[in-house]
Design a protein around this nucleic acid. Sequence first.
DNA 1: TAGATTGTTAATCGATTAACAATC
DNA 2: TAGATTGTTAATCGATTAACAATC
Lengths: 230, 230
Amino acid sequence: MGANINRESVLDPVRGEEFLPQLSRRVLERLMRYYRFLTESTAKESIPTVTSAQIAQALDVDATQIRKDFAAIGLQGMGRVGFEVPAVCRAIFASLGFDQPYEGILVGAGHLGAALLAYGGFAKYGLQVVAAFDNDPDRIGEQIGPCTVKPDEDMRAFVEQRQIRLAILTTPMDVSQGLADELVGAGVRAIWNFSPTQLVVPSGVLVRSEHISVGLSEIAHHLKREKSDR
Amino acid sequence: MGANINRESVLDPVRGEEFLPQLSRRVLERLMRYYRFLTESTAKESIPTVTSAQIAQALDVDATQIRKDFAAIGLQGMGRVGFEVPAVCRAIFASLGFDQPYEGILVGAGHLGAALLAYGGFAKYGLQVVAAFDNDPDRIGEQIGPCTVKPDEDMRAFVEQRQIRLAILTTPMDVSQGLADELVGAGVRAIWNFSPTQLVVPSGVLVRSEHISVGLSEIAHHLKREKSDR
DNA sequence: TAGATTGTTAATCGATTAACAATC
DNA sequence: TAGATTGTTAATCGATTAACAATC
């Protein structure tokens, strides 16, 4: 029992015309690398096709891996030619979810929040940050990038009215969990957490945490090992 | 042939009194989680010991995994008791490399650079940012956190004199590679790259890149799947 | 001592890589 | 057609998990 389940049937093959398999974090990361490589490096010459071997060499990934990843998002290559670059880009873009624009809000308009808003590179990937909230009276009304900072009290209503599904949390760690609870209560389905706390949310809600300490551990470890090697 | 090589001998068991195995990124990440859990959550009650099962439950990691990770950094538990919390924290702290303070410089004093300097949480992990550089005359002389912004021309000499081994790159993507080359030329051994470019460096130099797009892909993918599920 | 927990070996699982027939 | 490249199956590798004797 159980042994007879057909794995493939999990991703039902035809759903309208779109094909939306659940992709693991690892696959998403690789797809993103392919996408950046294809949109950035070929921009100069705009080569019409690319082979898995070419990408493999440039990114130091196995060519079979690439063909598998492409197959997973429904891409088919051409015999002796390779893959059409524009088609690959479109397919990756869509399966990463960037083709379907979505709105997000920023919570915590401190230095980091301001830096993220000023960066502005989100639009390229479908995200539009439509409001910023803070509880500091001095910051309220301030203009940060495209947003005017609003008071936290207005947050809940805003999320509900606009049906916001993403919140970017750039708050001090002591208030993050409380805000996360409120956001989820108002309907938020994903939190991009830049505060150094582990958030607890109901299952089904995605938390993506960017902890500075993870990067630092890799760096510190490398430096220490290198030093001890002499 | 080759089959006889003893894996264990790679990490030579005694080197002075310290024990510095090469740790994979995955292990580093887990160790960091354990560390944060032990230093943050037990701070309130300061329990003297902890079992692998307790950590496992709190962090949703397999208990055997934890014992293996601990063994990899030379930790020994006690029979029917578990592990001494302070000893575990010290061992993780040391094997991540945080026990050996190191200096870094920040290159590119824009919004993000300012945010990182203002954050100030680096000292906790052994990193001291001792200077900031920028090529914008308007920014030079400005005070950001603990640093006065210096011109890029002074960067090379500073790195050489102070023997700086880490640079944090928060520059626009078009200048990042050039700066990375210069930094490596001056002796930098690790680059923490916050600019959205893939850097090419000589082997032996570590590049840790924090690409915003990786996080976004996970979020966008989740939101899109969820929406299509109804 | 009895019982809980470690340390370690063996089994499982999943992800990566190799091989190669099918295809253009 | 001949030859390069795909798509896919099989083999390998490494990481995770289970099992259990050794230990306190």
